[in-house]
């Protein structure tokens, strides 16, 4: 149950892109075509699934206060958590390199489809963000960490494939010239994020709306998250539904 809850929460409520804006750089840069978006999304799922549990182990057995007590009683007071940024990013960079080598060796076809995206991923904020959120939310077991990495990856995958599909369609629409390209992508993403906010009630039964604003205590009345039936928003939900069914089939 705990696993199921974390799984859906990380995909929809705490979606990497729509709630925390993580990995926006590659999200905007590589979302012009659905096929490339699928490649990058798959690579992100893969790397997050590997690095989050790995960093969990590092955090648990090396970095936290008292984590070194397995070395002996005299190490029990050490607190190395200030080193976590450097250790996490080193793990990620190494893993990405390693994954690249392994995939190249054992599955050249997968390598050809993922290959160019893998090096990009080392500097994708979603990856480091996954590890840092894992640390700050004090996830309890390694299995939960694995689950968290995998499901946040899926959330990111959903987001980039959805926006790529919309961008492919929007090429045929008459967008005001200064908004073309980047501007309209920002605004669509904003609308999609508003749509995703409606998932906030999903795990609380809907009676208490939970809004995941990353900072600042939101004491204001929360407006019901029902975006106007804007054509692009409708399109977004359609695309998302398609994607969800795809995933469940797999």
């Amino acid at each position: 149950m705990e696993h199921l809850e974390l799984f859906f929460k990380s995909i929809f409520v705490d979606n990497m892109v729509f709630a925390y804006f993580l990995g926006m750089c590659s999200y905007l840069a590589v979302s012009k075509k659905v096929s490339t978006a699928v490649g990058l999304g798959a690579a992100v799922i893969f790397v997050l699934t590997v690095t989050v549990p790995l960093n969990w182990l590092l955090d648990q057995y090396i970095l936290q206060r008292g984590a070194l007590s397995w070395l002996g009683a005299e190490y029990a007071d050490y607190d190395l958590s200030f080193l976590s940024f450097i250790l996490f990013i080193a793990t990620i960079a190494t893993m990405v390199q390693l994954v690249e080598i392994i995939v190249e060796k054992f599955s050249p076809s997968l390598y050809n489809s993922l290959g160019i995206f893998l090096p990009l991923i080392a500097v994708n904020c979603a990856i480091l963000g996954g590890s840092l959120f894992m640390q700050s939310r004090e996830i309890e077991t390694v299995a939960l960490a694995l689950n968290y990495g995998f499901s946040s990856g899926i959330g990111w995958f959903l987001a980039i494939v959805a926006i790529a599909a919309i961008r492919e369609k929007i090429r045929y629409s008459n967008v005001p010239a200064p908004l073309r390209g980047l501007g309209i992508t920002f605004i669509i993403t904003g609308l999609m994020a508003i749509g995703f906010m409606s998932f906030g009630g999903m795990l609380t039964g809907g009676d208490a709306e939970e809004v995941s604003a990353p900072i600042a205590e939101v004491s204001l009345p929360i407006p019901a998250a029902t975006p106007e039936l804007d054509p692009s928003a409708v399109q977004a939900t359609e695309v998302l539904e398609v994607e969800v069914s795809d995933i469940t089939e797999k």
Binding site: P178, L182, I194
Partner: peptide, 30 residues
């Protein structure tokens, strides 16, 4: 406007900034 403090509005505000900037400088239009 309580909506402004929620995450999605940041995206829309940046979108509007891009809009204004590119309408002032046509060379930047994609």
């Amino acid at each position: 406007n309580g909506f402004m403090v929620l995450p999605p509005m940041a995206l829309i505000v940046v979108g509007i900034i891009i809009w204004i900037q590119r309408s002032r400088n046509k060379a930047l239009i994609e």
